[in-house]
């Protein structure tokens, strides 16, 4: 069976890169004695795939991976077992047994599903945004001006080439506080309600692990994520820095991922990855 795991990554674990996170979870599943499915061959490894790698330095409330298990206990017990062997900075908050694919159907991986992510981007204390922006109000006003420009052209570097891209269409939500964010999010989300079946799923209701800074300068962004269209939050902040004529300092911002979504083909609305059956 395929199981979708949702986890948080926070604190000092933000310094652990994606490949090391994969290795970390492989070892964690062994410590928790999960009955993992292995690939065949002389170097078998656990069947595991991540929705979208999280960059070094980022924290998250909503990371996803799909794993293969041969057997298991109830989702709640499985979450308890894995959390007993976690390091500080990793916490599993969801466990959902995916619906078996029908005949002639393949498993749909989290990676192929993801199309959007929400981020909270906060200015770390002791960093400044130049003389013109000294307060939260200044920031909100300037950022709105920036994001409302007719187009936001950036130089997007790929392995092969560099090209000018308009990133504006890839930004689908902007908010400056939690209430505004939740409000806007509601209208973007599909209203499918998830049937919680304790034998299939367990989701812990937990508080956000995002770091909070005294200066309160922050922005919520929803950005395209995935193979079709992908925009890193760092690129938006780099474009913003050049908009306000300051040097971009990648260390000034703490980027925190809040959630990942897939876009429903028919309604064009978003569904978070933990509210999907497959």
């Amino acid at each position: 069976m395929k199981v979708r795991i949702k986890f948080k990554k926070f604190g000092e674990m933000k310094f652990i890169g994606h490949l090391d996170v994969m290795r970390y979870f492989q070892k964690a599943f062994r410590r928790a004695e999960f009955d993992s499915e292995y690939t065949k061959g002389y170097n078998p490894h656990q069947v595991m795939s991540f929705a979208s790698p999280l960059g070094l330095g980022l924290t998250s409330d909503g990371e996803y991976m799909d794993i293969g298990l041969i057997s298991g206990q109830s989702p709640e017990i499985m979450v308890k077992r894995i959390n007993e062997v976690m390091a500080d900075g990793f916490q599993v908050i969801g466990y959902h047994i995916l619906k078996e694919p029908g005949e002639n159907e393949k498993n749909v991986t989290a990676m192929s599903l993801v199309s959007s992510s929400d981020y909270l981007i906060s200015l770390k204390d002791s960093y400044s945004l130049g003389a013109k922006i000294s307060s939260r109000e200044d920031f909100c006003e300037t950022f709105l001006e920036f994001i409302n420009s007719p187009e936001i052209m950036i130089n997007k570097k790929t392995k092969k080439s560099e090209k000018l891209v308009d990133i504006k269409p890839m930004v689908t939500l902007v908010a400056f506080d939690e209430i505004e964010y939740k409000d806007k999010l509601k209208s973007a989300l599909s209203d499918v309600t998830h049937r919680i079946d304790n034998n299939q799923s367990y989701f812990a209701d937990t508080e956000s692990v995002a770091d909070i800074y005294d200066n309160d300068i922050k922005v919520y962004l929803q950005l395209d994520t995935g193979s079709v269209s992908n925009l890193k939050p760092e690129l938006v902040m780099e474009a913003f820095s050049s908009y306000i004529n300051i040097d971009y300092n990648p260390h000034a911002w703490q980027v925190h991922r809040l959630e990942m979504y897939t876009r429903d083909d028919k309604t064009k609305k978003l569904i978070s990855l933990d509210k999907l059956e497959k």
Binding site: E12, I16, G17, L56, G57, A87, H251
Partner: peptide, 17 residues
Amino acid sequence: DEILLSVEKPARYIGGE
């Protein structure tokens, strides 16, 4: 954070294993 994110493999220096 600034130092850890500007050096190679910051996991060398954070412990917490």
